[in-house]
Each structure stands twice: as structure tokens, then as C-alpha cells.
Design a protein around this nucleic acid. Structure first.
Lengths: 341, 341
DNA sequence: AAAGTAGCCGAAAAGGTTTTCTGCGACCGT
DNA sequence: ACGGTCGCAGAAAACCTTTTCGGCTACTTT
């Protein structure tokens, strides 16, 4: 490979040095390196040669100061360990990286004061825009309309309808899940989900109930709210099997819950998927692939959400702002827990 | 780009504006706001007042350009979805954020070319330092010695001993795990681990064997290498129980493997921990807490690793570089799978 | 041959801040 | 009253790059 790295990298080399070595002015050097059409080919070659020899790399700070555009954005998250933030962040980083925009990462840990502080710090570094990633689907307070740069809210929408928010369509996801179960012939479907204070659990349940109604079916029992854990899934499934032994499918509010449900089913001697179909939400690979059989799940497509947020931010920076809430659809990933392998 | 209509908050306010409003020169304004002792108290108050009134926020770009220090660092990772990168990244972000250093996040996705590109971009933005986070414990190629800023390697050490690397002590972790099992009275211990091409599996096994020898014990059977999955854990445990029914503990190379092992034990009618103790590595909460009983595991303390890496980078930036490999110890987190609840 | 033109290059300003250096007035000691 | 010191404020340079504008040379046109 080309690893001819001169030791000059240790000392900072400026355009001035390049110009001097090439025997031209800084102005000409700049134009030569930036492809401006006001420099003779021979001169340009000399400058490029000099720049390479010195391994010159333009100081983006000076450039940004002048251009009033830094090519940086702030990514403001509220839980870095979160299931949801990370893939969104990946998608955004991906989209930005492809356009060689650098991403400032800040974790506010759900603290409003820390968040304000970070926003201030990012603005003083003159980011071109901000993406605010929530950790729950519930609406969050707006950063305000008076910011000097565009903002896009991802996952958790802003309370202010004049902001632009990109979210996942949890209602639609619930509908798709039921549609899938029905399409495999299930008619006695129960629903065990997680923490009722989460918008996600409510919305998914809402979508599921709507889809059932659309198929002329009713949920078996009530929606079982609890927590987003395996142990809740086990406990709820055991209760449910006692009360409604006739059920032939359990839709679970998350993959973790689904894992617990599958454990309980096995202990009760119910085969999956032959006796009972099971599916979850989130399509968290470590849970879906470890299950026996592999777990059908609804993929919320977080990476795409991050990418879309990045694209919308680009558009806003380029002067094409939008507002409102944009919901992205989820997709069912079918595995052995709903259709026999 | 023409945003004439909305608020005037988009209008950028500079030190010049503050100075004019306060009736002083920019030089005095700067000194007043930065606490320089060459300003009369009354004058300083006037300037501060003016700055507040205009909600002035100094342009960090201009400041950095002059100070030759940006207060930014680059965090270079290779897998954002990774189990290991994220907590490390959290720890580093935490440490930096506390000192109001901004973090540029870049994901090279394991691609050397992309990595070079990102390093170049970060340097052109004049970061003060770099942290390179690996996704495996195996050594990686150095970024080179000719970089103009200090670099700290985290998790995956650099091949160059003159670089500074912060890693976890997997050998010690293996030792600690066995020590714990022995301390609970186990003497017939087996070891099921993951992918043999990972340094982590080899080192943990090495530490475990050393500790066994130290206790005058021998491993039951051979070290079982496979993959980092639940299904491998299930399969390996079934085989193992057939060949060595006398075993009273299984040390697993990861929590995922341990989950599979526990499933198999249950199906073979072996009680955990009364008949067989089980423990894992990584202390991945979603796996340890979902297990029945909760899984004892070795916590690698990734967040601390990230924080230490950040601190070392600070020190290096401040002119106190180190080199070599610094290994941080792990700690056993005891739960119900090794000691009766 | 004079005038115009095209091509190429350099000087200088701009961007916002910090710092050094100079200057100016007031106060002190004798 | 005078030289000296001290405290405070402003002018200007510096950081590095881009861009505008003016000027020079050489060439084309009439």
C-alpha cells in the first residue's frame, strides 16, 4: 500500500508552506488544490506535488470559520446503552459518514440540564444541525424554535408539531403482526406485552386490536401489561394458559417477553409453532436466533430511521425544512416460531 | 438557505457586538469575559451584562484556530452494534463530557481504508487525540507513530508496543471465575466456550486452567470450543453431560453460551445450582437477569475501560504519554446460578 | 501598430477570537 | 512639582483558508 508518510506529519504544515515550496502565492495554492479554473495546469501540478510532498491537509477550522458551515452535526442521545438509540445512531452515522460529515456524540442521560448544556456546547462549536434521539416513543419536550440550526427528532417525537420528528409506526407494527398470525391460520390470539407506561406497548396493542377487529376476531383475554422482561413473559404465559387453554398464538410486546413465553410454553408441553405460534417485537437478533425455534419478530428498522433522520437534516440544512411527524413502517421477519420450519 | 422570515435568533452575535454594546473594544470584552485581570470590575460587569443580553456564545472555531487546541477527540470504533464497543464508548463519552470535551464518533466497520479516511478527516478537524476501540481482544495494526496527536487503543491492543493500549485482563478473569467456583465447593468443573479464533476464549480458558492447577484440580474433559451462541451451549452441554455425568460446575465462555447450557441442564433434569453450578462471562444484564436462576458472571467493566482510556488520552495530550499494554481486572458478580438463593 | 482580450497570478480582506504590546491617566513618594 | 509605578483600555497581530479584485503578460483583432 501507499504508506509513504513523511515525518513532517508531526509539525503542522499550512497552505503557506505548500505555496512557498511550489513558488506561488497562497491564493494560487488554494485555487490549485480546490480545482478552481484560474490556474495553469503546470502550476497546479507543481502545487499538488508540493502538497503531497508535505502531506498537507487543510485546516478545516479555518475553512469552516470562513464558510460559515462546519460539516458537523450533533447527535444528542439519552441512553447510550439503549436498545433503540444505538441502531438509530448507527444509521445516522452511516448516512453522515458517507457524505463526510463528522458527528459529535453527546449523551444527556435523560437529564434536561445536561441536555441544555450539550446543546449549548454544540452550538458554540457551530454544528450545522442536530439530531435528538429519544429512548422511548413517548413525545418529548422541544428544544425550542429559536435555535440557529435545524433539528430533527428521532424515535421520540417532539411535542411541538412545528418540529420535524421521525418515528416508527408502532400501531402499524401491531397491525402487521396480527395480520401475519392470521395469515398463518391463527384465530385465538392473546397478547402479552410490557410496561403499560410506554407508548410503544399501548400503540402496538392498539394496532393489534384494530387488526383483529378487521379480521372479525377478538383477542383471547385482555391485553396483559407487565414489564419488558423474560420473567414477566413466563409468568404471564403460565397464567394465560390456565385461563385460556384454547389459544393458538401469543403475540408478545418484545422479543424478551417472547423468550419467557416460549419457556413457559415448553414447560406446559405446548409445541411451538404447532400448538401455539409466538412472535415478538424489535427483532433483536440475540434473542430471536437463540430461541427454539427461531423467533418471528417485527423489525422496527431503526437503522433506516437513523438514515432518514440524517437525510431530513441534510435537506433542512440545505434550506428545505419540513415539520410534523413522519412515521416509518415496520416489517415482519418470519421465522420458525410462527411457521413450521 | 435564505431564512429571512423566522426569528432573529439565527443572526450570529459576535464579540464585536458585545463590545459595541458595552462601549469597549473587543480586546477588553474578551478579557472581561475570560476573567483576565486587566479589567476594572465595573467595566467587566458592563461587558458581562451586554454578553448576557445578546446571549453571546463565543465561536469555538475561532478560539480553537488560535489556541491550537480544539477540545475535541475522535472516537474510532469498528462495530457500533457490538457488545463491547458500546459500553467502552459510553465510559469514554462520560469521562470526556465531564470535562466538556466533544467527541467525534466514527465507525470504520472494520475496513482499514475507511479507517484511514476517518483518521484523516479527524486530523483535518484538528482533534486533540484519538481513541481506537476494537471489537475483539486480538491485537490490531497500529495507526502509526507519525500521527500529530496522541492515540489510545481500547479493548483491542495495538501491535506496536510503543503505543498505549488499555485492555481487559481475560486471563485474570478466567482465574477469578474458577476461584469463585472452587470457593463454593465445586471440584469437577468443565469449560464450554466460544469461537476458538477469539483471543478472549483462549485467554479465559488459559486463566481457568491455571487457576485449576493452582487448586490441585483438573478440568473435566477438554475445553469445548464452538461459537458464541446459545445453541452451541445447549449442544455442548448435552454432549458433556453424556460423557462426564459427574461434573458439578460448568464455566461458560459467555453469558449467551451459559444460557444455552442452563437450558440443556434443565432438560437433563439437573438442578442449578444444587447439582451443577453455571457461570458466564461479560455480565450482560439482559442475559444474566433473564436466566433461571439469575446467572453468575464475570463483569469485564467496559465502562471503566472507556473511562481509563479517556483519562490516559487526557494525560497524553497534557504531555504525559505512556506506552505498553495496561490490563484492567474483571470482577465476579455472584448470583443464584452458583450459590443457592 | 494600436487596442482590446483572455489567461494567469498575487495582494488583500474576511471570518471571530486571544494575546501582546503600547499608551494614557492617576496615584505615590520625595 | 517631578519622575516613577501601577492599573486599565485599545490597536494590532496572529491563527489558516477562501475569494474578490486588480494587474500583468501575451496574444488576437482590426
Amino acid at each position: 500500500m501507499n504508506n509513504a508518510v513523511p515525518s513532517s506529519a508531526s509539525r503542522k504544515v499550512t497552505l503557506n508552506d505548500v505555496a512557498r515550496l511550489a513558488g506561488v502565492s497562497v491564493a494560487t495554492a488554494s485555487k490549485a488544490l480546490n480545482g478552481r479554473k484560474q490556474v495553469r495546469a503546470e502550476t497546479r501540478a507543481r502545487v499538488v506535488e508540493a502538497a503531497e510532498q508535505l502531506s498537507f491537509s487543510p485546516n478545516e477550522l479555518a475553512r469552516s470559520l470562513l464558510a460559515d458551515r462546519t460539516g458537523t452535526v450533533g447527535l444528542l442521545t439519552n441512553d447510550l446503552e439503549g436498545r433503540f438509540s444505538i441502531p438509530i445512531l448507527m444509521g445516522a452515522e452511516d448516512a453522515f459518514g458517507a457524505d463526510s460529515v463528522a458527528v459529535f456524540l453527546c449523551d444527556a442521560r435523560g437529564d434536561a440540564i445536561r441536555e441544555k448544556h450539550h446543546v449549548q456546547a454544540l452550538l458554540s462549536r457551530r454544528v450545522d444541525g442536530l439530531i435528538v434521539v429519544g429512548s422511548r416513543t413517548d413525545p418529548r419536550s422541544s428544544l425550542g424554535r429559536e435555535l440557529p440550526v435545524p433539528v430533527v427528532y428521532a424515535y421520540a417525537p417532539s411535542e411541538d408539531p412545528d418540529d420535524l420528528s421521525i418515528v416508527v409506526d408502532n400501531v402499524g407494527a401491531g397491525r402487521s403482526a396480527v395480520d401475519h398470525l392470521v395469515s398463518t391460520g391463527r384465530t385465538r390470539i392473546a397478547h402479552i406485552t410490557g410496561d403499560p407506561t410506554y407508548g410503544a406497548s399501548q400503540e402496538r396493542a392498539e394496532g393489534a386490536l384494530a387488526a383483529l377487529a378487521g379480521h372479525g376476531l377478538e383477542l383471547v383475554g385482555e391485553v396483559r401489561f407487565g414489564s419488558w422482561t423474560e420473567s414477566w413473559g413466563r409468568a404471564a404465559a403460565s397464567m394465560l394458559l390456565g385461563q385460556h387453554p384454547e389459544l393458538d398464538a401469543i403475540l408478545c410486546g418484545s422479543d424478551q417477553v417472547a423468550r419467557g413465553v416460549m419457556d413457559a410454553l415448553r414447560e406446559h408441553g405446548r409445541a411451538v409453532p404447532d400448538d401455539v405460534a409466538v412472535m415478538g417485537f424489535d427483532n433483536w437478533e440475540i434473542f430471536t436466533s437463540g430461541a427454539r425455534p427461531a423467533l418471528t419478530s417485527v423489525d422496527m428498522n431503526f437503522e433506516r430511521l437513523g438514515r432518514v433522520a440524517a437525510q431530513r437534516l441534510f435537506a433542512a440544512i440545505d434550506g428545505e425544512p419540513r415539520s410534523g411527524v413522519e412515521a416509518l413502517d415496520a416489517r415482519v421477519v418470519i421465522r420458525g416460531s410462527t411457521v413450521p420450519g
